[in-house]
């Protein structure tokens, strides 16, 4: 049996009296791209903060590749790669220096790190720009470097928090295509938060989050078949804006 990459069980979280997540449960399998769809304020960023253990949830449980995030956090986090919504690269350092820094945080030695940096950057057509300062790169290239960084320690689960926001169409398409290739070629599990419907592929899984609750989850094709709705746009609209929202 294949190990589940991410299992979220009955997760709730509140900022004071304001409930941000309410009994959220779902699973992400290896070799599967799961799209987390939700409007602003749905709870996506809170969910990502909990999965990346920026802080702990008081209710519910998160397991990463079989490791409890609270009790075995270091083992769990070692299997996680993240691309946050905001750029987290150091603009004053070069692409290679940024990636070497990340490799060091994951305990990867210099020689092995340089080999992996070359592999990941070549895959993203960024190897020629390895010596440039991040400040000199455009938004799309910065995102590619961040994806390369997130994959450097060979994680089992990749979290992407709205990675294409603010990018032009060719850059967006390149990133969507690259991530889907990773899923099929490397059996990587991906959880991709977005509110852009056109980033969803036909064979993706879908989780619709609204007001801190999961409104629907499963394979996109199954959701469409069960509900009779035409496309993911209609799913999103009905579940977040219609009477069922």
């Amino acid at each position: 049996m294949t190990e589940i990459a991410l299992a979220v069980e009955n997760l709730s979280f509140a900022y004071g009296a304001k409930k941000a997540l309410d009994g959220v449960s779902f699973k992400v399998q290896p070799g599967e791209c799961t799209i987390l769809l939700g409007p602003n304020g749905a709870g996506k960023s809170t969910l990502f903060s909990l999965i990346t253990r920026l802080y702990d949830a008081r209710e519910g449980r998160i397991e990463l590749c079989g490791f409890d995030l609270k009790k075995q956090s270091l083992r769990a986090l070692a299997r996680l790669g993240v691309v946050f919504q905001q750029t987290t690269l150091d603009p004053d350092l070069s692409v290679t220096q940024n990636l070497r820094y990340h490799a060091a945080l994951h305990g990867i030695g210099r020689k092995a790190a340089d080999k992996r940096i070359q592999e990941e950057l070549e895959r993203l057509a960024m190897f020629e720009r390895r010596g440039e300062k991040v400040r000199q790169l455009n938004g799309g290239h910065k995102r590619r470097v961040e994806i390369a960084r997130a994959l450097l320690h060979k994680p089992s689960l990749l979290l992407l928090d709205e990675p294409t926001v603010g990018l032009d169409m060719p850059s967006r398409q390149a990133i969507v295509s690259h991530v889907h290739d990773l899923v099929t070629q490397q059996n990587l599990a991906v959880l991709w938060a977005t509110h852009l419907i056109d980033e969803i592929a036909a064979d993706d899984s879908l989780i619709v989050l609204h007001k801190g609750q999961v409104k629907a989850s499963g394979k996109l094709s199954e959701i469409l078949q069960t509900t009779g709705w035409a496309d993911p746009g209609q799913v999103f609209q009905k579940l977040t804006q219609g009477p069922q929202a």
């Binding site: 920026l54 270091l74 993240v82 919504q85 905001q86 987290t88």
Partner: peptide, 14 residues
């Protein structure tokens, strides 16, 4: 604020 601190906090170290 800019997020790079979050990157540090996500790495597998106490």
């Amino acid at each position: 604020e800019m997020g790079s601190m979050r990157m540090l906090m996500v790495c597998p170290l106490p």
